[in-house]
Design a protein around this nucleic acid. Structure first.
Length: 870
RNA sequence: GCCCGGAUGGUGAAAUCGGCAGACACAGCGGACUUAAAAUCCGCAGACCUUAACCGGUCGUGGGGGUUCAAGUCCCCCUCCGGGCACCA
């Protein structure tokens, strides 16, 4: 019995404490929530001069729908656990939160309830903030909160937009754009998912020709692609999706002259010029195999030719109509290839061959040049088309020169050579691509080129509830600006405020256009009458840089202070759903590069490490109102407490996997927390006593002490390691459960004084700290009960003592021919010989070896023994 | 069609480096406590065979093959489920 036993420090106190041991989250949680709310410095980041290493922990900001979703609870529980852990590890942590507060739902709500969008949104924010506080999330509200629909924020959208206009990165053009009839606005390409609106998964997007503002994201296409290699902390999946989205394709432009056609240049120059069709190909090495030219139905030349060819006009119109129909039934891409001959011909500049020109429905107008050379021998699609229309199929590539026959189409290129290709015959395919492109360049009919799938980002939205675009149209015009021409507002005119009084209707056209006080203004250059731009910005603009604003949320004279951004960036850990892999996450990367080139920041990339958590599902299906399987966080909290809901969200599955929400599971976690609470609360006076008297450190430890401390330190080591890499919080919590089960089993021994007070104190002290990132309310309460001072997240994280964690004796499985024969106990230090000896001396093993010959013995130190016998 | 995940007890899952498959929970079953129930505590629990019971045995990580003393883990082929892209020249 060691000197610091329970008796010696007073059992009566423990008895007295029993009635406090019942876990009651409904009492504890509001108590601590109120205390935390009263202390804005609790979660505040420290100044850069603190000397601590920084850690920027960020979760994706929510849209303020008014209701926190269980998926948010999961997302924020992950980030919160990490932030708290990092605080306890001594980091200066920035853990901000804000609101992605512009967007259509506010307008819809306005229509439905006759509530102004601003009022509706701000009320929702208050509601959700209450919910977030109830969950105990450690956000620095006072220091960081950003609400994107307030002019204090969106004026900087306008400010950056003006800088982009100056830099030629924002421009206005007329083009075909995606139109969602439900949103009654244009969408960017990234916001069209499978032909439907990202917000309305069952609403097909239409094509409309409109004049819109675009951001020149394509200028950064190469960098956005190449820098993906510099993001090892991002999931491979997200990087792959971005790579595919950017879709860089190296190829060649080749100009084919249209045979027998010539026209006068529109400039009035009398010089005759041939009509040309420029095609884009990645396989210029196959050009001797081209047997036709295929144009998209929307190709400019087709538009010209149909004017004098009624039959062609009809065929092309049908084609366009059919494409539209196919898009609407969702099987664009599967429609049968068909085409129509234009009756015209083009000349292959490499060999002078005359090729018929067709219009085909499988040629996309907005990719490449909208025209291709058709090589049926070496392209699946061209082959299919040629078969249907009896166009010749020519073989110009083969695995080697001697190949007699080869199935066509043959699309290999890495180990292929050219045949029947004039002077290039015999060249390796890849080399020929290079040489032939150079040949085309030298002879002025082609060039190497790179095509991207990525298109410029259309940011105009024909909606009210968004950032006004800070541009006007000067009605009379002035020097350098035509009447109605566009003029950028000066910085001093910012912010362009959204008018508050507005009638929202569902009719077409931008709602702002119906507010004369907003629309009518004066030209900042000539002072004449002007109209304001009435479209607003895509809400993805807001979320493209909000995390920079967090570092300096109240700055009234600049979007942020560059020093602050340079200190905090890049974001050390960003956590959110994978659904933003190519929306928010690509726009954010683009915005970062723009701001860097504007000299506002220094970093090339916003996010060092990205984590995409899995979905929360219920009964095997994604939660949705229509399925009636939606779990309400409020209900969970009122039934089990926030600590149980949070801990369950992390316990039920590793965070990257989908999580099946089971209420019985939450109840189970709640029981576990109650057990922890009862035990810890009961022994809290012991902890307090020990920590006040600080007894001799080198007290003698009983076997019970040693066993408990061993488990404790193994648990500390496991959790500490998991937090820094794997993030399998489910096994962390399981490890704490194992510890608690063992402590619980030892309770009679602790009561009987067989465990030293010092050990009891260490165990419960550490247990509370280990659980603090997961269950902040309960651990705060217990910390107080054991006389702890200050916030738990300012306490140092427990250190694992390898010496205490070490097992003295380990169990080694002994296999015979790979099958388990018995388990033997050996000292942890035993070498291979010693383990072998113990294994061979084991009775069960001996019994099984009767009549057999041991041919080989494999011993893996500390792990197992395998006897190979005959 | 292409690219990425995934498939382990009744359920969620664990096994981090090729070394005891199923940790930790949930649900279930049995018991203690209780007048009773709830709560709590203790115990059982992959399937099958054998046995009165113990003991013992066989099979087992979606399916089939392979490498290895040893495979949930590595290699090849296939099935199913989820996600992304999809006529991108």
């Amino acid at each position: 019995m060691s000197s610091g036993s329970l008796q010696s420090i007073g059992m009566p106190e423990i008895e007295k404490n029993e009635n406090q041991n019942r876990y009651n989250p409904a009492e504890i949680e509001p108590k601590w929530q109120a205390r935390w709310d009263a202390d804005p410095s609790l979660y505040a980041a420290e100044p850069h001069s603190s000397g601590k290493p920084k850690f920027y922990c960020l979760e994706m900001l929510p849209y303020p729908s008014g209701q926190l979703h269980i998926g948010h609870v999961r997302n924020y529980s992950i980030g919160d656990a990490l932030a708290r852990f990092m605080w306890m590890r001594g980091y200066n942590v920035l853990h901000p939160m804000g609101w992605d507060a512009f967007g259509l739902p506010a307008e819809n709500a306005a229509l439905k309830n006759n509530t102004p969008p601003r009022e509706w949104t701000l009320r929702n924010i208050e509601q959700m903030k209450v919910q977030m506080r109830r969950i105990g999330l450690s956000y620095d509200w006072a220091g960081t909160e950003v609400t994107t629909c307030l002019p204090e924020y969106y004026r900087w959208n306008q400010w950056i937009f003006l800088k982009m206009v100056d830099a030629g990165l924002a421009y206005r053009k007329s083009s075909k754009v995606n139109w969602c009839p439900k949103c009654a606005t244009v969408l960017a390409n990234e916001q069209v998912i499978g032909g439907c609106c990202w917000r309305h998964e069952d609403t097909l997007v239409e094509q409309r020709e409109l004049e819109q503002w675009f951001l020149r994201i394509t200028k950064y296409a190469d960098e956005l692609l190449d820098d993906l290699d510099k993001l090892p902390g991002w999931p491979e999946k997200v990087r792959t999706m971005q790579r595919n989205w950017i879709g860089r394709s190296e190829g060649t432009h080749v100009a084919f002259a249209v045979a027998g056609e010539s026209r006068k240049q529109e400039t009035g120059n009398s010089k005759q010029e041939e009509q040309k069709i420029t095609v884009f190909t990645t396989r210029v090495d196959t050009i001797f195999g081209a047997t036709s030219i295929q144009l998209a139905p929307e190709h400019p030349l087709v538009k010209e030719w149909v004017k004098s060819d009624a039959e062609l006009q009809k065929a092309v119109d049908e084609m366009i109509a059919q494409q539209k129909a196919a898009r609407e039934t969702g099987d664009i891409g599967n429609i049968e290839k068909h085409g129509v001959s234009t009756g015209k011909h083009a000349v292959n500049p490499f060999n002078g061959a005359t090729l018929p020109i067709w219009v085909a429905n499988y040629i996309l107008a907005d990719y490449g040049t909208g025209a291709i050379m058709s090589v049926p021998g070496h392209d699946e699609r061209d082959f299919e088309f040629a078969q249907k229309y009896g166009l010749p199929v020519k073989r110009v590539i083969a695995p080697n020169l001697d190949t007699e026959e080869i199935g066509l189409p043959y699309t290999g290129e890495e180990e292929a050579v050219l045949v029947d290709s004039g002077e290039w015959t015999g060249e390796a395919s890849l080399e020929a691509q290079d040489k032939m492109a150079r040949y085309a360049e030298e002879h002025g009919f082609g060039e190497k080129t790179t095509t991207f799938r990525l298109k410029d980002w259309g940011v105009s939205r024909q909606r009210y509830w968004g950032t006004p675009i800070p541009m006007v149209y000067c009605l009379n015009g002035h020097e350098g600006v035509k009447p109605g021409g566009v003029v950028a507002l000066p910085e001093s005119a910012l912010p362009v405020l959204l008018p508050e009084k507005i009638e929202i209707t569902q009719e077409g056209g931008s709602p702002l256009g119906k507010v004369p006080e907003f629309v009518n203004t004066t030209c900042p250059v000539c002072g004449g009458p002007a109209r304001r731009e009435t479209d607003t910005m895509d809400t993805f603009v807001d979320s493209s840089w909000y995390f920079y604003r967090y570092t300096d949320a109240k700055n009234a004279t600049a979007p942020f202070d560059s020093d602050k951004v340079n200190y905090w960036f890049p974001i050390d850990q960003y956590i959110g759903g994978v659904e933003h892999a190519i929306l928010h996450l690509i726009y954010s990367r683009f915005w970062t590069k723009v701001m860097r080139d504007l000299g506002l920041i220094k970093n090339d990339e916003p996010v060092e490490r990205l984590f995409t958590q899995g979905m929360v599902i219920k009964d095997g299906a994604k939660m949705s109102k229509s399925k009636g399987n939606v779990v309400s966080p409020d209900e969970m909290i009122s039934r089990f407490g926030a600590d149980a809901a949070r801990t369950y969200a992390l316990f039920a599955a590793p965070p990257d996997r989908d999580l099946d929400w089971q209420e019985d599971g939450v109840a189970g976690v709640s029981r576990f927390l109650a057990r922890v609470y009862r035990l810890t609360s009961k022994f809290a006076p012991v902890v307090q006593e020990v920590e006040q008297t600080s007894p001799a450190a080198n007290a003698v430890r009983s076997p019970a002490d040693v066993a408990l401390l061993r488990t404790l330190h193994q648990t500390i080591a496991k959790i500490t390691e998991d937090f820094s890499g794997r993030w399998h919080f489910n096994t962390c919590i399981a490890a704490i459960m194992i510890l608690v089960n063992e402590v619980s089993t030892a309770e009679p021994a602790m009561d009987a004084g067989e465990v030293s007070a010092a050990t009891i104190a260490e165990i419960f002290h550490s247990l509370v700290l280990l659980l603090a990132p997961f269950a902040p309310f309960m651990t705060a309460e217990l910390w107080e009960q054991m006389g702890g001072e200050g916030a738990l997240l300012r306490q140092p994280w427990p250190e694992a003592d390898a010496e205490l964690a070490r097992e003295s004796e380990i169990e080694i499985p002994v296999q015979i021919n790979g099958k388990l024969a018995n388990v033997v106990k050996v000292s942890a230090e035993s070498d291979e010989e010693a383990i072998k000896a113990v294994a061979l001396a084991d009775e069960k093993v001996i019994a099984r070896l009767v009549g057999k010959t041991v041919v080989k013995i494999i011993v893996v130190k500390g792990r197992m023994v395998n006897l190979v016998v005959k």
